[in-house]
């Protein structure tokens, strides 16, 4: 029987196992490489739009979270078999999904731009011919995608982005008196992380603290900057306590290991690569070895325990299935943003 109602509880974060499970359903193995390529392109594309429109960086961060969240519940397929159906092809185009993500992120971050203005800039960057009919069709497609995104987010605008990681990184650097080079290193790492799914797994303050701990261990004294930096107090690292930053230790540890893995595998493609000399002055080897050294140092960190999550349980979890938009268009979809609320009702 066709379902006429549904209940969605907002899930702010997903464990690494849940993320891989969701991706296994939405991104075919044959498309994993292309998904990652597109994600890099989308990130560059949105960054250019944001620069032209003079939007703050947190909008890019939020847009990337929305974009990646979209593909947790929607199948990544770029081309629709029926070429005559232009609307459907446009709806599947990841660049249009990214524009819908940017449009909603602008609203949520209170940096409102008219969709038309975003599209004019976006099409110019892509060298698309800007015809009135095309813009109107694109606008219609993106507004449809926005409503899909809103449902995937369960109309919850607060969970992942109440405080953006970039502003928290800077605030934490200030709080512990980190010098310019170390702070810039942190900021660059955060910039690199925006294109990763780390924001779907960990809250911003835990990511920010993990970045700071990596910076203090990495000691980026050879970072290329014009500014001179004072020395860093060696005792800062020992005195850092995750509890002072309201961070659960295991989540910070997850962050540390994730970031190190990211640079071990993708250092050459990273923005940080442009700011560090090729050879690490401490090791006299390539920078990547420094990240590998740190990984072995941190290998015993206690991280999230996912032993209880197995494939069968994930299959039974309805909140991890593909999103059924037909229910809200024909029937009723109810959205709850707090689990506590649901438990109250069951009681």
């Amino acid at each position: 029987m066709e379902k006429t109602s549904s209940l969605s509880i907002s899930r702010p974060y997903y464990s690494p196992k849940e993320l891989s499970y969701l991706h296994s359903k939405t991104i075919a193995d044959s498309k994993k490489v292309i998904y990652n390529q597109r994600k890099h392109q989308v990130y560059q594309y949105l960054f250019q739009i944001i620069k032209v429109l003079k939007l703050p960086l947190k909008v890019l961060n939020t847009s990337m979270i929305y974009y990646q969240k979209f593909y947790l519940f929607n199948i990544f397929e770029e081309e629709f078999e029926d070429f005559s159906n232009i609307e459907k092809s446009m709806e599947l185009d990841p660049f249009n999904v990214s524009l819908a993500s940017l449009f909603l992120a602008c609203k949520n971050e209170d940096c409102i731009k008219k969709l038309r203005d975003i599209l004019l800039v976006a099409n110019k960057i892509k060298d698309n011919q800007i015809e009135e009919n095309f813009i109107e069709l694109q606008r219609k497609i993106i507004l449809g995608l926005e409503f899909k995104l809103l449902q995937i987010l369960q109309f919850n605008f607060n969970n992942q982005i109440s405080f953006s990681t970039d502003s928290l990184v800077l605030q934490f650097c200030k709080k512990i008196n980190l010098n310019y080079k170390y702070s810039l290193f942190c900021w660059l790492v955060n910039f690199d992380l925006m294109l990763t799914p780390i924001g779907l797994t960990l809250p911003p303050h835990c990511i920010a603290l993990a970045i700071i701990i990596i910076s203090l261990n990495f000691k980026p004294n050879d970072l290329k900057t014009r500014e001179l930096s004072s020395g860093v107090n060696e005792n800062i690292l020992d005195s850092l306590n995750p509890k002072d930053f309201k961070c659960p230790e295991k989540l910070v540890n997850e962050g540390i290991l994730y970031i190190l893995d990211f640079y071990i595998h993708q250092y050459n493609l990273s923005i940080l690569n442009n700011y560090l000399p090729q050879i690490n002055e401490d090791l006299n080897k390539e920078q990547i070895f420094k990240f590998m050294n740190l990984k072995s140092k941190f290998n015993n960190l206690r991280t999230l325990n996912e032993h209880s999550i197995d494939g069968n349980l994930l299959k039974q979890d309805e909140s991890l299935s593909l999103f059924d938009y037909s229910i809200s268009s024909k029937g009723t979809s109810r959205f709850i943003n707090k689990r506590k609320r649901l438990l109250e009702e069951i009681d």
Binding site: F147, L150, Q151, F155, S328, S329, K330, G331, T332, S333, R334, F335, I336, N337
Partner: peptide, 9 residues
């Protein structure tokens, strides 16, 4: 409560 019905919020 927040719910979506017939495409409206």
């Amino acid at each position: 409560d927040v719910f979506s019905n017939d495409g409206n919020l």
